[in-house]
Simulated scan of single mutants.
Amino acid sequence: MSRLTSLPATFTTSTALGRGVHPRELYRWRDDGDVVELSRGVFRQADAPPASYPDLLAVALRSPIAIVCCRTAAAVYDLSDEIPLSVQIAVPTRQRPPRITYPPTEVFRFDVVNFELGLSRIEAAPDEWVRIYDPARTVIDLMRLRGRFGEPLAHAALQRYLRRRGARPPELLSMATRLDVLGPVRQALDVAMAQ
């Protein structure tokens, strides 16, 4: 057990092996309930403080370069009432998309040039952080992918964003320009602000 307490609250199999834990010991901890397997090869100590976003934490450890995006980010920021059926993440276009079956994960490939535009992070568990696009980037991505997700989701997210304290419409327009969706965003912004 002393080896377990020396590991982070959430850790991967490779982290445990790197600290001298034998695979049999790791799986004994799992079978005895000392750790919970969040995803294949990702474990969390059973007595660790509860994680606010265990699925996001599991996906982040499986794919450290990934950034939480789209519907999942909208749910985190309360830009949507929709409960996503999968964790949506973005990876750079040149990166091989991770294959994660649990938790269910949907991968988007975003252009390398603007991949980290709007990058932020949230605390998924105490002192454990996950990369996520900020609210403005989330709105812009929903507008860019409105053909896939539907216009109602994109427009509702925009309206909720505008009602937030600290909403910055000029930032939305600047980001929309960089992500080549200025026309639709400007039009939706004009309609939303006229209401």
Rank of each mutant, 00 (worst) to 15 (best):
E116I: 08
L179S: 05
E25D: 10
G147T: 10
S39Y: 00
P98G: 10
R62I: 07
D141Q: 13
D134R: 14
E37Q: 15
L79W: 02
L119A: 14
R131L: 10
L17G: 04
P126L: 02
T105H: 09
T138N: 08
N114M: 06
I67Q: 13
A188C: 03
G150A: 00
A66L: 09
P103W: 02
E123D: 03
R131Q: 11
S39L: 11
A136L: 05
V185I: 04
T105G: 07
A194V: 04
G150N: 04
V87A: 02
A51W: 06
T13Y: 06
R99M: 09
A46P: 01
T177C: 04
A157M: 01
Q187C: 02
T101L: 15
T177L: 10
F43P: 01
M143I: 15
T105E: 02
V181K: 07
I100E: 11
L56H: 06
T10L: 00
Q88H: 15
T13F: 11
G41F: 00
G183E: 14
R96S: 12
L145P: 00
D47V: 05
P126K: 05
A16W: 01
P50R: 09
L189Y: 03
L4S: 06
A58M: 06
R186S: 14
L4K: 03
S63T: 12
E82F: 12
P97D: 04
Y102D: 08
P103F: 04
L162K: 03
P126R: 13
R163A: 08
S63H: 03
P170A: 11
P152A: 00
A16H: 04
L17H: 13
L38G: 00
P184G: 10
W129T: 06
R121A: 12
G18A: 04
L182C: 02
C69N: 10
P84I: 01
L79I: 03
V191K: 12
R109D: 01
P49F: 09
R30F: 10
A157C: 03
L158G: 07
R24G: 14
A176N: 06
V181G: 03
D127Q: 13
E116K: 11
A156G: 08
F110L: 13
D111I: 09
A90N: 10
M1Q: 13
P84Q: 01
R148L: 15
V68N: 05
G166H: 09
S120N: 12
C69Q: 11
A156K: 09
G20Y: 02
C69V: 13
R40K: 14
H22K: 15
A66G: 13
S39M: 08
A154C: 08
S2A: 12
P97A: 03
A157P: 11
R144F: 07
L117R: 14
V130E: 05
R137W: 05
F149L: 15
R71Y: 08
L26P: 10
P126C: 05
R146F: 01
E128M: 06
E106R: 15
E25F: 02
R96T: 14
T12Y: 03
I83C: 07
T5L: 12
P23H: 11
Y161H: 08
D31C: 07
